[in-house]
Amino acid sequence: MSFRWGFGRRRSSAPPIDRATIAHLDEFASSRRGVEAFLEPQTTMARTSLLLVASDGEWTRRSIESPAWARQFAGRHGLPLYDAAVVGYPQRMRDFNARQKGRRVTE
């Protein structure tokens, strides 16, 4: 019997996305104006994720099963899809986060 380290083996695919996650992304994309999608690549610490950012900077992020799923989702909703590792994150998202942080301090 020979031992094989597993090089060249295909990794198991990511688990399918649950209905609650799909419903959340659908609701965000359809209820906000100017939504853009940003694909965040898988890292050693995190699965592939989809970040949706509205025109006012409000955002949501969820783990997804693959970049292909992100492309299908964006196409179904008519959203532009960007690679976050290439283009980065929009300034309006950082501005939104700063406004939210300021609200928490004063409330």
Rank of each mutant, 00 (worst) to 15 (best):
P80N: 10
E65L: 14
P90E: 00
R61I: 09
N97I: 15
E65D: 13
L79A: 05
N97R: 15
S13T: 13
M45P: 03
R61W: 04
P16M: 01
L25V: 04
L25D: 01
Y89T: 10
E40Y: 01
K101S: 11
L39V: 03
D56L: 11
R62G: 00
W69H: 01
R71P: 03
S13Y: 08
L52S: 11
R61T: 08
P80S: 13
R71Q: 11
I64W: 04
E40T: 14
I64Q: 07
R62A: 15
T21D: 06
A74F: 05
V53S: 01
R47G: 10
Y82R: 10
I17D: 00
E36V: 07
T43A: 09
S13K: 13
P41C: 02
A23R: 13
G34A: 10
Q72A: 15
G34D: 10
T44M: 05
A98D: 06
D95T: 15
A29N: 00
R47C: 09
D18L: 08
T48Y: 00
A20H: 14
E58F: 06
S63W: 06
V86Q: 12
R92C: 09
L25G: 01
N97G: 14
V35H: 05
V35I: 04
A14F: 06
M93I: 12
F96Y: 11
G57K: 03
L51W: 03
K101F: 13
L52R: 02
Q91Y: 02
M93G: 12
N97L: 15
S30G: 12
I64R: 07
R32S: 00
S49K: 07
P16T: 02
L39T: 01
G34S: 09
A46P: 04
G88P: 03
R19H: 12
R76Y: 12
V86C: 08
D83S: 10
